[in-house]
């Protein structure tokens, strides 16, 4: 199935479901990220959109950034805690691919601007989402990311502790 056909079936499916989660991990880095995840009828594919904002710098500077990310996930509902009673929740092993853009602004404490930038990146990897209850999720992921600004490849370990609304 092509990506376009998949998107079409996703949008037109009456059985497709959406969940919204608050990512707890970004709080540790001074930010908030809200993620909406839309699952296909078969629950084998899902699409997530994340919108995050972060107070990113301190000291003699004040920094903030806003990020927007799109992620495609392929699911295999195997293993422990891979299903939950809440409809539309998907768990288990996943393969993910993500594209992101981040807008950053930095200023001095007196408000004078240092500069701003917009950059993009992408990453791909594996993960496993545990669903220990109706409203919680725990998703360790490991992937490889590429930053289009620094031209650097890096490992992307992550742990998402989600609260589903």
């Amino acid at each position: 199935m092509s990506l376009a056909a998949l998107l079409l079936s996703l949008l037109s499916s009456a059985e497709a479901r959406t969940s919204v989660s608050l990512q707890v991990a970004p709080l540790l880095a001074g930010g908030v990220t809200v993620q909406a995840e839309h699952s296909t009828e078969s629950l084998r594919w899902s699409f997530a959109t994340s919108l995050g904002a972060r107070a990113s710098a301190a000291g003699d500077y004040r920094g903030s950034n806003v990020s927007l990310a799109f992620e495609v996930r392929r699911w295999w509902h195997v293993g422990p805690l891979s299903s939950a009673p809440l409809p539309g929740r998907v768990g288990g092993a996943l393969l993910w691919a993500r594209a992101e853009a981040v807008w950053v602004r930095l200023e001095h404490l007196d408000g004078s601007p240092v500069g701003a930038s917009l950059r993009g990146g992408g990453s791909i990897g594996l993960g496993y989402r545990l669903l220990p209850g109706w409203r919680f999720e725990l998703t360790p992921v490991l992937g490889v990311g590429f930053d289009f600004s620094t031209h650097r490849l890096s490992a992307v370990p992550g742990l998402t502790v989600g609260v589903v609304f």
């Binding site: 990512q23 991990a25 970004p26 540790l28 880095a29 001074g30 930010g31 990220t33 993620q35 994340s50 995050g52 904002a53 972060r54 107070a55 990113s56 710098a57 301190a58 000291g59 003699d60 500077y61 920094g63 950034n65 990020s67 990310a69 993500r98 992101e100 981040v102 950059r119 993009g120 990146g121 992408g122 990453s123 992921v141 990311g145 930053d147 620094t150 650097r152 890096s154 490992a155 992307v156 370990p157 992550g158 998402t160």
Partner: peptide, 26 residues
């Protein structure tokens, strides 16, 4: 002297492009 403190920044694990992922060896 000026100090830039990066929120959530580590020594080799740092906020990556996205706000909810960290990047190793960055």
């Amino acid at each position: 002297a000026q100090l830039l403190l990066l929120r959530g920044g580590g020594h080799v694990i740092n906020p990556a492009v996205s706000a909810d992922q960290l990047s190793y060896e960055s």
